[in-house]
Nucleic acid binder design. Sequence first.
DNA 1: GAGTCAATGATTTTCGAAAATCCATGTGAT
DNA 2: ATCACATGGATTTTCGAAAATCATTGACTC
Lengths: 224, 224
Amino acid sequence: MDQKKPGGRTLAGDAYEAIRQSIRTGAVKPGDRLRFTDLQALCGMSVTPVREALARLTAEGFTVLDDHRGYSVAVLSLEELRNITAARQLCEGEALRLSVTKGDGDWEAGLIAAHHLMARIPQARDDIPSAMREDWEARHATFHAALIAACGSPILLEICEKLFSRADRYRRMSVSLSGGTRDVTGEHRRLMELALARDAEEAAAALREHYGRTAAALEGFLKA
Amino acid sequence: MDQKKPGGRTLAGDAYEAIRQSIRTGAVKPGDRLRFTDLQALCGMSVTPVREALARLTAEGFTVLDDHRGYSVAVLSLEELRNITAARQLCEGEALRLSVTKGDGDWEAGLIAAHHLMARIPQARDDIPSAMREDWEARHATFHAALIAACGSPILLEICEKLFSRADRYRRMSVSLSGGTRDVTGEHRRLMELALARDAEEAAAALREHYGRTAAALEGFLKA
DNA sequence: GAGTCAATGATTTTCGAAAATCCATGTGAT
DNA sequence: ATCACATGGATTTTCGAAAATCATTGACTC
């Protein structure tokens, strides 16, 4: 899914990152049209790389294409959140079960390291407590990837990764809403402990519940 | 996943279909480089739509991109086959369970219709018995889509659809190898009957076995 | 002979403008 | 007033060539 280095070896890769970031941070909102003129100005390049970036983003579900009518930011909905959550519970649950069963010492080390890095910094920003820290979000993604890293199926990992990033925008909303009413740190630690204890079934169950909570926190808000 | 009509409203869409077909039929083989010069000649258009087509194909796993070194056809391997099979058993199995549970009368009708259309024509070609008929393959895909159509989750459907088309090249190999040693028609009928009988668990199990057989038929060949 | 480095050729990647398409507005007829 | 149809502007889509990059070859040193 990611053949481009973060450094950005091609302009198309840079455009991908720039537009992705604009969607992440909310600079462009769900449903907004993405005009090539604007994006070219934003990214400082011609239309070709922008077009390729949008093709990738569309494949991952962040944008949608209407032939001859252009691209726009994919909308958020309660129904999609439920779908994504169910799919993640199914796929990541199974991936975690496999990973816990098959994981070796390197996997354990990577998991512990990832958890340590994530637990070391706060989740919310100092200046805007309702906003998620960018670096925490990155380490959070790394932690969840480390959990299932040893599942042995690149394709399952790819599916999980896509679902994870697709849930990203919902996760941000969740943090800005349920301010502290939830012990996310504790849930993460418990996940790690169950995984290291090689309790595959319990770990998978805990992961499913973990995602269920995030979805539940948004149910009321998205209904309105 | 498919925002383009088969008719082809944009050249990029036409290029996508043309290259996809070349990969399907084996006109270009796994590992082959896909030079823009050649593809432009094949599709009869400029580089821009070809590039967009390759971006889509890469997102679906048919081609791979090496920065500044171009695109090439994704290789086939026993390991990938196993991964795809496992992922399909997980995702499509669950989708079928949901679909059988939730499906209404329209779903039943669609399933029966799809099965009838598929059963009406032979699987192999008259001239080249080892090759799969294009129209059968299309109806086969429609049948499997009809099975899970009522699962209620567009995202799960999208995942299944991608996995199905990603298994396409392996399926073709399977037909050219195991000539008639397998009652594929019977397996499909049984799947339909279990689904219509609302036996969700048995139907899901039959589907998993159905995919397992296809994979098993190729195990020996791909090992060599 | 092995290894480094520059030059060449092939190929990808990007550009800026032209062509095609869509959307909205306005005109005229029923 | 309503509808059909043409016109203009905005936007996407495509083109063909220029720029950037990579792989290969050959000369040159150690």
